[in-house]
Design a binder for these strands. Structure first.
Lengths: 141, 141
DNA sequence: ATTAATGCAAAATCTTTGCACTTTC
DNA sequence: GAAAGTGCAAAGATTTTGCATTAAT
């Protein structure tokens, strides 16, 4: 039952973890598959944990948090700060910005080339601009 | 002892609260003075509470939270989301953006005209862009 | 075998709430 | 004196930590 369809994604995700220097444990593999095999995604720890439960993957919430942070540190995910109450993680590592739908607390990507920021001021000496985040806060009406 | 210097700011802050439809209670007046008589400021609830203690103003942390939210709702403050762990409030209501110094967790204003965002995409039908936040995340090196 | 990762529950934050008491109008 | 605001402590929510157990190399 190990046909091309099931083997390829497994290998992809596995290599991705290996390359990042993370041991491909059962939990990390399972979470990575949920995260990276579904296109661009925006998840919170709570959401990913619930999804794992549904998929019959036994993993604790603490491990989900740890894993999300490890993936972020390893450059597999990016943390997006839009809500002071919750952390969101984005699987899209390309240069881009976000819509944040305040009514539904949903994030949506805006392709990088659709927002252009000019006249960026220079930061104080000895500092570097690590990232430019543009968030379009959207609500009904 | 009621000379111009002491009367004027008091009246300004008082009117500001009145205009906003907020009763000028002892606590609100004291917090408003701390917030609005020191130029543009970025505070957390914890910071403002500590400042009040130092100034011998007896006010509970819960009241500081309530007051910050009331001021925000009344249009006297603006909440800035840069850290998923803490809420920041900005006394500068003019159109502008922010530097966020990740090493020190400090916010700094960037005048509105120094950042220009073009090519803003249109949001889905029935939705409005309520605000465009640009955050330049800065760190050492 | 070594070393790293996991799970759990407990702790740590930050923020909100409920309700009796106090202050403002 | 009616209505609004405050304080406190308790509850909520999210996230992190410590440590014994389990799994990966």
């Amino acid at each position: 039952m190990t046909n091309k369809e099931s083997i390829r994604p497994y290998t992809q995700v596995l290599d991705r973890l290996r390359t990042a220097g993370l041991r491909p444990t059962r939990q990390r593999l399972a979470l990575a598959k949920l995260l990276f095999e579904g296109g661009d995604r925006h998840v919170t720890a709570e959401m990913l944990h619930a999804e794992a439960q549904t998929a019959a993957i036994r993993v604790s919430l603490a491990t989900v948090y740890n894993t999300l942070h490890q993936f972020t540190t390893a450059g597999l995910l990016r943390e997006i700060v839009v809500d002071s109450q919750r952390s969101y993680f984005d699987t899209n590592m390309a240069d881009h910005h976000h819509f944040f739908f305040e009514d539904s607390s949903q994030l949506e990507d805006i392709p990088g080339h659709e927002v252009i920021v000019t006249h960026l001021p220079t930061p104080p000496k000895g500092k570097t601009v690590k990232r430019v985040d543009v968030i379009l806060r959207v609500s009904d009406k």
